[in-house]
Amino acid sequence: METLKYTFPATKKISQRAHVGVVGSGDMEVIVEPYDGKEAEVTVRTGVTGFKKTWEAVIDRFFTQHDIAAKVKINDFGATPGVVTIRLAQALEVSSLDTSVKS
């Protein structure tokens, strides 16, 4: 198992917290919570070791494109870069909706 941490400068607030995905084969879960600081703090835990550079590229691309001040936790069980990006986009979408229950 590997734990990776990243921070990105951010200015925009998100309206609510979000949770999507599951720590199942080829998938991952993301938890996004609003953060009062001026950055996005990303923590990745992955069971597949040795892909630090790939993670860096995927995460960097996403948070460069999306300016959100948030705490982001990723628990990964072998999601591919495509799945990672889709899950993050989904979490972002949920976090800017205003219904109280979403999965």
Binding site: M1, V23, I31, E33, D76
Partner: peptide, 21 residues
């Protein structure tokens, strides 16, 4: 005890397994 409460298994990480929230 939703995912945001973050009460996950304390026994998985020591075995190299990623927990779920």
């Amino acid at each position: 005890l939703s995912p945001f409460d973050g009460v996950e298994s304390p026994h998985l990480e020591p075995q190299g397994i990623v927990p779920q929230s």
